[in-house]
């Protein structure tokens, strides 16, 4: 039985048995390359739930501060963010019924569009290992490998780390390759080149805050950019203010980010904002042997003090 059917089955069951008040999952989008997050309360609505290669957003984003009992569909990265939310007291473990989905990676609609060279995609048929993209007068087969999202290519935890149910056999974790070679590439540049890289990266930023809002970690009641007494950051598209926003938002995610890629996915200007947080993820691993959200027993790295913590930078 496919993942989608199993998800529908479990969702229907837990709603019927009143184990949860609602189930958060995905339904088919109105666009062939998208899936829309949905919350269902009626077991009959379980039919709406779907699972395909376009279920890219992190559903844990919808959890903070909710009071109900919630069933939630979670792939590897999502489940880690759920763990982070539990540790950070944004939701209680008892409230959740986690429908875990082992994931082999989601697909990046931007890569598909780039490969279509201006032709419009009207339909997608998924097979194992490939997708057939159809449009007016054409049909093109693309291997999943060629259109995987950046973060899915480097994913270190494909299987959910916390779950109440698993809808498929666990998948093999990615074995080879250095997950942080993209960060190392930037590290190897000189300071001026690095500054230029980041300045160019956010040149198109319109301050829409899609990255911040799609991020499950950004749940502050008032974001620092919205603070007005005092106003820390200007609201125009001034490059310094924009850089400040991105640097500081990334740092607020330090040690907590699971590289789910929702920020990059949501950005309407196709900015790869993950380049900020990935450096922090690499450092958290190197300095504190920490990866966010692997367990609900562990505190986040910037929340913990150990006597053997790296201290050479302190004079």
């Amino acid at each position: 039985m496919g993942r989608a059917e199993r998800i529908r089955e479990v969702a229907k069951q837990i709603l019927e048995e009143k184990k949860v008040d609602l189930v958060i999952g995905f339904k088919k989008g109105t666009h062939p390359l998208m899936a829309e997050p949905v919350s269902i309360k009626d077991p009959k609505e379980a039919e709406l739930l779907c699972w395909d290669s376009f279920c890219t957003l992190n559903l844990a984003n919808y959890l903070p501060k909710r009071k109900e009992k919630i069933g939630i569909v979670a792939k590897g990265c999502d489940s880690r963010n759920i763990a982070v939310h539990i540790v950070e007291n944004q939701i209680k473990r008892e409230q959740l019924y986690i429908i875990g989905v082992p994931c082999e990676g989601m697909v990046d609609k931007r890569r598909i569009l780039a490969l279509l060279h201006g032709r419009e995609c009207m339909e997608v048929v998924e097979n194992d290992g490939s997708l057939i993209v159809k449009g007016e007068g054409f049909e093109q087969t693309l291997t999943r490998e060629s259109i995987l999202r950046d973060n899915c290519r480097r994913c270190m935890h494909r299987n959910p780390v916390i779950q109440d149910d698993l809808v498929a056999w666990p998948v093999m974790e990615r074995a080879e390759g250095d997950p942080f070679d993209d960060v190392k590439e930037i590290e190897e540049l000189g300071p001026e080149a690095r500054w230029k890289f980041f300045t160019d990266l956010i040149r198109d930023c319109t301050r829409c805050y899609a990255c911040r809002n799609a991020c499950p970690l950004c749940y502050c009641p008032t974001c620092f950019v919205d603070e007005s007494e005092p106003q820390w950051v200007g609201k125009s598209i001034d490059p310094t203010d924009t850089m400040t926003f991105h640097l500081l938002r990334a740092f607020h995610c330090a040690g907590r980010c699971t590289d789910c890629g929702s920020c990059q996915q949501a950005c309407p200007m196709d900015i790869n904002v993950r380049m900020f947080t990935r450096k922090l993820n690499k450092d958290a691993l190197e300095l504190y042997a920490s990866e966010a959200g692997l367990s609900i027993e562990k505190r986040p790295p910037l929340d913990t003090y150990r006597p053997d913590d790296e201290g050479k930078f302190i004079k």
Binding site: P37, V38, C208, P268
Partner: peptide, 21 residues
């Protein structure tokens, strides 16, 4: 509204949205 993440994408890309601050 469930799925909405309240970003500004729709409003900033929209040719008829005119609100300003």
């Amino acid at each position: 509204a469930f799925a909405c993440i309240n970003c500004g994408t729709c409003t900033f890309l929209c040719p008829t949205c005119w609100c300003f601050d």
